[in-house]
Simulated assay, not measured.
Amino acid sequence: MSDLLRTPLYDLHVGLGAKMVPFAGYEMPVQYALGVMKEHVHTRTKAGLFDVSHMGQVRIDGAPYADVAAAVETLIPVNAMGLGEGRQRYGLFTNEDGGIEDDLMFANRGDHMLMVVNAACKDADIARLKAALEPVLTVTPITDRALIALQGPLAEVALATLNPIVADMKFMDVATVELVGVDCWISRSGYTGEDGYEISVPEAQAVALTEALLAHDDVEAIGLGARDSLRLEAGLCLYGHDIDSGTSPVEAGLTWAIQKVRRAGGDRAGGFPGADRILQEFDDGASRKRVGLLPEGRAPMREGVPLFADETSPECIGQITSGGFGPTVERPVAMGYVSVEHSNIGSVVFGELRGKRLPLTVASLPFTPANFKR
């Protein structure tokens, strides 16, 4: 642990009794005194506060937003140019083979683009951006701000006690809002399937803001354990597990993230890494597909479990990429990839666990409905 980085909230986590674990090069809280199960339920029913300061925040500027977006579109298969000011969108870095190098969020902040990338990929992502965009544009990693997420049906109520203007924001809106006497960059988004906000706050005020939110009766600190079970129930991909450099957006079921303007026949079709494979899979389909999976019984099936069509066939048809117990749905849930002929909802496949094959039913995603404020 001595080689790991710490977020500006490290001492606060320790003071709250968090169990700290290594994650993406940082010491991060996996759970607090409530425990993973209760933290998960609290977020679904009230509001949970997450430290996500380990993620990468990046500013891209040096030209009008339209020019920045046009340049970024050479790296992502997403309509960046069509994103309105004060709005945010989900995106993907792809490689020449059509695989996903990282997933990300980017926002139109008027005079610049603000991007948030995954912690484990941020050094590679920043290098990719600099190599492709500089010196025409400027790519600046933001290292003096923390990032926290407030998630749950009462997130709006809790955050509005610090500034009522946040109640006017809709899903994927971004704004600069004063909280605890300092300008914060807020998006109405998150990684739990619940309504909520992600808040970039100057490092010096990170503890004050976190403590102000935790002072609200309905807000609890939530660790990585519940963050993972929440996103799994919400059917959201975890980079390095459900998506990676060998997984295409079509295989992953992320076609919704590639707007029509970037697809075949669109005004700005192609022009991104891996376009040949990705656009062909749009037309012809992929050979495998990410699906929801419901194991029978109460025992979860976790990442790495191989999947088979029946109890005796030697041919592996896929693999679980995320799995665990879903506290909201009160049963084990999983996601994984299966060959397309076995991907229909209701199909039964078999996971091999300790030499025994056990049935799972292919299910639609998400396992629990999204609760975003549209």
Score class of each variant (00 low, 15 high):
K122A: 04
D97L: 14
R89G: 11
E27S: 07
F23P: 06
V139G: 02
E281W: 04
D218C: 09
A175C: 11
G318H: 08
F272L: 05
R302D: 11
P369R: 01
I317K: 03
L154Y: 09
A63P: 04
A120W: 07
Q88T: 12
G17S: 06
I142F: 08
L224C: 08
A18C: 05
D183F: 07
E211Q: 12
P332L: 10
L4V: 00
T255L: 11
D123T: 14
S200M: 04
T143S: 14
A120P: 08
A70C: 08
T43F: 01
S364N: 13
I76G: 09
R262C: 04
G235L: 09
E85W: 11
V41P: 03
L12H: 00
A221K: 01
T176P: 08
P164V: 11
G35A: 00
F106L: 14
P141K: 06
G235H: 09
Y10E: 01
Q31H: 15
G318T: 05
I60F: 08
T312K: 14
M301A: 14
T328H: 12
P135T: 07
R89E: 10
L293H: 13
A107Q: 13
T321H: 06
G98Y: 00
H342V: 06
G98S: 02
R357S: 02
E73Y: 07
L232F: 13
V349N: 07
N79S: 14
V68P: 06
A120D: 12
A269M: 00
S2T: 02
G48I: 04
S343G: 11
G56E: 03
V14G: 01
Q151V: 05
M113K: 09
T361H: 03
G253R: 10
R277W: 02
K289Y: 07
A69L: 05
A286T: 07
R290C: 12
R277T: 04
R59S: 12
S187Q: 09
S53L: 06
S339C: 10
F282R: 00
G152F: 02
L104S: 13
A275H: 03
M113I: 12
I278Y: 01
R263C: 01
I243C: 15
T140Q: 07
D173M: 11
P22N: 01
T43W: 01
R188E: 09
I199G: 04
V136K: 15
A215G: 06
N371K: 13
G253Y: 06
V180H: 10
V139C: 02
L150C: 09
D61S: 15
L232M: 15
V305Y: 03
L209P: 00
V177M: 11
G271C: 03
I345E: 15
M115A: 13
L114Y: 14
V177E: 01
A47E: 13
D144T: 01
G62Y: 01
L4Q: 02
